[in-house]
Amino acid sequence: MHIEFEFSGGYGGLFAAKPLGYRVETDELPDEVRDKLLALIRDSGVLELKPAQATGGPGPQRDVFTYSLTIGEGAAAKSFAFDDASAPPAVRPLLSRLRELAVEQRMRP
């Protein structure tokens, strides 16, 4: 499964000028990492979300992380925009894991 993910913002305004990205084919990940990620995708129900349930937009929240997420292949891929306050609770563990993977990738020598 193809995943493209970006995040930025928060209290620190992290990666404000250029969001931190993570792009991966899950088949290329180590088994343990892949299995956990696919389980989070399944448990999040993200692929069943309607666009209106997955669109971060202007609101009163301040200093939240904002995310863009594309999952799937070619024309069947689905894209979402979230932020920490408006993301459905079930999706938040997936966003957290993708954020960790993006940071780990950046830190890798």
């Binding site: 928060g10 209290y11 929240q61 939240v64 306050a85």
Partner: peptide
């Protein structure tokens, strides 16, 4: 959250 690296005001 878990290991959440942030603080925010939600309105």
């Amino acid at each position: 959250g878990e290991n959440y690296m942030n603080a925010f005001w939600d309105g």
